[in-house]
Design a binder for these strands. Structure first.
Length: 908
DNA sequence: CTAAGGACTTGGAGCCATTTTC
DNA sequence: GAAAATGGCTCCAAGTCCTTAG
């Protein structure tokens, strides 16, 4: 069966309905108290439910979801309540409607399980660094011109340190290896730990300092000897251990991950949140499923035999890993466990009062200390422009341009094939900026008479040339680039080496705003060191400014923020461009986890919240009423909050900024939404709403023009302020995360039946797709889509013809006649009826598979699955599901529990 | 209270390498 | 083994939401 797809689904809640089982409202009493308490508390609350789900193969629906007639999963808030009150119940497997989600049984895509070699990161085209000297001049010139920008008010340290070395030698470094976070280590089988640790010293490409090596090995020893005493500690490190280091991989593997615990981390106290209540942050989710299984049956003493079996089972564990990789592709940054970020209670220099606000989340950007030591090498600049000397034409005649003028002309010329060239605004903005560069008396007086074709052609041929270079040359170029960039790729945060995200300064170009952006086409000027503010640890050497004699705009030592550098956006000087750590860093991982914990927390509050806003649908207080309806829409449709926007931005809206014209009523109770959301992506959806909502909308629209605000009494800060009263830390965007993750969780739990891995992957994709639809994550249809479709159609037709022929042959064979000649006139082999029947069924299967493929392709042509995977789906859902559903049965899972935390790169 | 400033997350496009298909 | 399809990753724009200033 093919996956059922509904177009725009409304969010799968049926509030108002009193379907759902009667449930214990556990939280009605406890929740109140909890209300202003910590987030973390709910974490522990939900622990039971979660672990139940994880350890039981029974989809613990608990009435958690119901299904609409269309097949949509409808989570109902009541579920979680019951769950935790019930405890470990397998009896709760009363699927509301197990049959009605039609999941494909046969997988159309035969996802193979081959090992996918990881791609080396940073593979972008090589950067030409040769222009460096000129770049220096260029920037120097700029300095002279804008010398008013030169500030002498830099900290003395900044000036003194400009030339100090950047080797970071003084700083102890611990390579972080594996995705796991160190504080979780106690939960991790020693085998896994040893494995991880054994990797530490191996990827030494970046650690040529003997001191660092010593430190690393010391840390390893400490860790093995004392820091994490566990039963399994005795286990000899006979884990089918590491393959010998493959040197060619070292950089790669290091780039891919990198975590070993901070030696200090074990000493540092864990963050205690706002209130005196300590954070209970070891929720079950952080415990490998293996551990959970073991909770009841410890098998530590079996370790030796397990180890013996390690070799034979390695292939199995690697296949489970591969499958995991299939669905978690995007999540590989390692978000499965964090919590090491030692958040100190003490404030940093800024000293905003820790207790004054209700910040209950550590690290939520509230002036808390984010790091203690921070070392990095700053940013890398794009190469200077290399003039090509190709002359463009003005009124048919070649024109001389200075390199600066030519550079901008080239930016424009190479955009010929983009949609921007159809937009007058783009051309107008470009012309205004370029004209300034040309100067008053230039021969070029208007854009219309400009012919950039020669430059365009030159660019195309350059592209062609690039394509032609051999693999070897490409490799060499890549290596060269790597060498140049290596030192910028890493930062050392609290002694732990972390990947830096965007260490490349954005090159100049023409601004490519989305939608009808008023500033599209404007020149985004080159960024120089004097534009850049560096943030770095007090004791760390200040990164060398790449231009001798020049310096950074400013050096800061602000440990309440996570950015390493920033500059003002040249297009909108009010905005900053930041350099942050990569998503794989623990700083990012930490906040990612907090995000999901907050969303999980909402699970416990949602019922009350829904009850509250339902009550307010008819409130006499218009503000209250608008808040209620807006919250409803955000909850039901996963709309974004909708902040106000400036006139110099594209005209897009979110919930609070919806205009009257964006919502059309369709009697009796439907609302049709039609607006441009973030990135000017169109949101079109018609949904049934509760009658009071419908009536409220009618009221809000009354006596307003089409362009007026629907929610005129509302903005995001009011809305969020209200939400915060309902749940600590609650904001509009939490609903999106919540909806996405709970939808995935429900659909996986309900949708996964038996079937092979391929079928399960289809289940996952289907769930992923639902989430993407809910979140309105779209993509443009690929250029080749229609070609691909018709190709598939052709193939199907061919197969059908074959089928027809086979059937004829079968008929004849049954009558003892030999087959007719094939369409191309060849004589066919005389086959017996059985063989022919087999062939027929094979062909039929092929056709079906192709038709499924086509349908999937068509269904997904405008749906982007990646965005939700990266931003909205709690990776633990996926990991846990994989562990529950792949290949291994329960007893094998138990048996192989020691292997569950295997490094995804593990090879026997 | 509102506006501005600031820091961070979320988002789609497009490039590029890898895998699949023919 | 070449071309096409796929998937991962980078880029950088565009959101959210918080704090601070007035």
């Amino acid at each position: 069966m093919a996956v059922e797809t509904n177009d725009k689904t409304s969010l799968p809640h049926d509030f108002g309905d009193d379907d759902g089982p009667v449930t214990f409202k556990r939280y009605t009493s406890s929740k109140k108290k909890q209300l202003h308490s910590e987030l973390t508390k709910s974490t522990s609350n939900s622990l039971d439910g979660q672990s139940n789900r994880q350890s039981s193969k029974v989809p613990s629906s608990n009435g958690q979801s119901s299904i609409t007639p269309k097949g949509d999963v409808v989570p109902s808030a009541k579920a979680s309540v019951m769950k935790s009150s019930v405890g470990n119940t397998k009896a709760s497997n009363s699927l509301v409607n197990p049959a009605s989600v039609k999941l494909p049984v046969a997988n159309s895509r035969s996802h193979s399980l081959n090992d996918k070699p990881k791609s080396v990161p940073e593979q972008k085209a090589s950067i030409n660094i040769k222009g460096e000297t000129k770049f220096i001049k260029h920037c120097t010139k700029d300095y002279a011109e804008d010398s008013e920008d030169e500030e002498d008010n830099k900290p003395l340290s900044a000036r003194l340190k400009v030339n100090s070395n950047n080797d970071n030698k003084a700083t102890p470094v611990v390579v972080k290896k594996s995705y796991q976070d160190s504080d979780d280590d106690d939960d991790i089988p020693l085998s896994a730990k040893l494995f991880r640790n054994s990797n530490v010293g191996t990827s030494s490409g970046n650690y040529d300092d003997p001191d660092e090596k010593k430190l690393i090995s010391k840390v390893q020893k400490e860790r093995q000897n004392g820091s994490s005493a566990s039963i399994k500690q005795e286990k000899p490190s006979t884990v089918p251990a590491k393959r010998p280091l493959d040197n060619s991989n070292s950089v790669h593997s290091q780039a891919k991950k990198s975590k070993v615990s901070d030696p200090a981390a074990s000493i540092k106290t864990k963050q205690v949140s706002m209130k005196c209540e300590p954070k209970v942050d070891d929720d079950d989710d952080d415990i490998p499923i293996s551990q959970r299984i073991k909770k009841s049956a410890t098998s530590a003493d079996k370790s030796s035999s397990i180890n013996k079996k390690a070799a034979t089972s390695a292939d199995k564990s690697s296949s489970i890993k591969k499958n995991l990789a299939k669905v978690t592709k995007v999540n590989k940054a390692g978000k499965t466990s964090f919590k090491k970020q030692p958040k100190k209670l003490k404030k940093s220099g800024k000293g905003s009062d820790y207790s004054k606000s209700m910040k209950f989340l550590p690290g939520s950007g509230d002036g808390q200390k984010k790091w203690t030591t921070l070392v990095h090498n700053g940013v890398i600049f794009p190469p200077l422009y290399q003039p090509h000397g190709i002359k463009m034409l003005y009124k048919g005649k070649p024109v001389d341009l200075t390199p600066e003028q030519e550079e901008v002309a080239t930016m424009y010329a190479v955009m010929r094939d983009t949609d921007y060239m159809q937009k007058d605004k783009f051309k107008e903005n470009f012309w205004n900026d370029w004209r300034k560069l040309l100067g008053r008396n230039h021969v070029i007086h208007n854009l219309k008479d400009c012919d950039f074709t020669p430059i365009y052609d030159w660019y195309q041929s350059e592209k062609e040339k690039k394509k032609q270079i051999t693999t070897e040359e490409k490799k060499a170029l890549k290596e060269e680039k790597m060498k140049q960039e290596e030192k910028f790729m890493w930062a050392i945060v609290d002694g732990v080496k972390e990947k830096v995200g965007n260490f490349r300064v954005e090159p100049p170009g023409l601004f490519r705003g989305r939608g009808e952006h008023p500033k599209m086409g404007k020149l985004k000027r080159r960024i120089c060191p004097r534009d850049i503010v560096i943030n770095i640890g007090k004791d760390a050497p200040v990164p060398e400014c790449p231009i001798p004699g020049e310096r950074w705009k400013e050096i800061r030592h602000d440990n309440t923020v996570t950015w390493l550098a920033y500059w003002s956006d040249p297009i909108n000087p009010k905005l900053f461009k930041y350099v942050f750590l990569a998503a794989s860093s623990s700083l990012k991982g930490q906040s990612d986890k907090e995000k999901y914990e907050k969303a999980r927390m909402l699970k416990d509050y949602i019922e009350n919240i829904r009850a509250a806003y339902t009550k307010d649908f008819t409130s006499k207080d218009i503000t209250k009423q608008q808040i209620a309806v807006a919250t409803y829409l955000i909850d039901k449709l996963a709309l974004r909050a909708g902040n106000e926007k400036d006139d110099d931005e594209a005209d897009t809206v979110g919930c609070c900024t919806l205009k009257v014209e964006n919502v059309t009523r369709e009697a009796p109770n439907k609302l049709k939404f039609n607006f441009l959301g973030k990135d000017s992506i169109k949101y079109e959806n018609t949904v049934e709403v509760e009658l009071p909502v419908y009536n409220a909308i009618l009221k809000f629209q009354k006596e307003k023009g089409p362009g007026d605000d629907l929610f005129d009494m509302l903005d995001t800060s009011k809305l969020n302020a209200h939400l915060k009263e309902l749940m600590p830390g609650l904001t509009a965007k939490v609903f999106r995360t919540f909806n996405a993750s709970i939808t995935l969780d429900d659909m996986l739990n309900m949708g996964t039946k038996g079937g092979d891995v391929g079928e399960k992957i289809v289940v996952y994709q289907h769930a992923n797709k639902q989430v993407a639809i809910i979140c309105n994550h779209q993509r443009t249809v690929s250029k080749s889509h229609s070609a691909q479709m018709s190709k598939l159609n052709e193939k199907i037709d061919e197969l059908k013809a074959v089928l027809k022929e086979l059937k004829t042959d079968l008929d004849r064979a049954k009558k003892g006649k030999s087959p007719l000649k094939s369409s191309d006139g060849k004589t066919k082999r005389n086959l017996n009826p059985e063989a022919l029947e087999k062939k027929i069924s094979q062909t039929n299967a092929k056709i079906e598979k192709m038709q499924r493929d086509m349908k999937t392709k068509e269904d997904l042509k405008t749906v982007a699955l990646g965005t939700s995977k990266i931003n909205y789906l709690d990776p633990r859902i996926t990991v846990a599901w994989c562990k529950r559903h792949e290949i291994f049965n329960k007893s094998l899972l138990e048996k192989f529990s020691w292997a569950m935390d295997v490094d995804p790169d593990f090879r026997f």
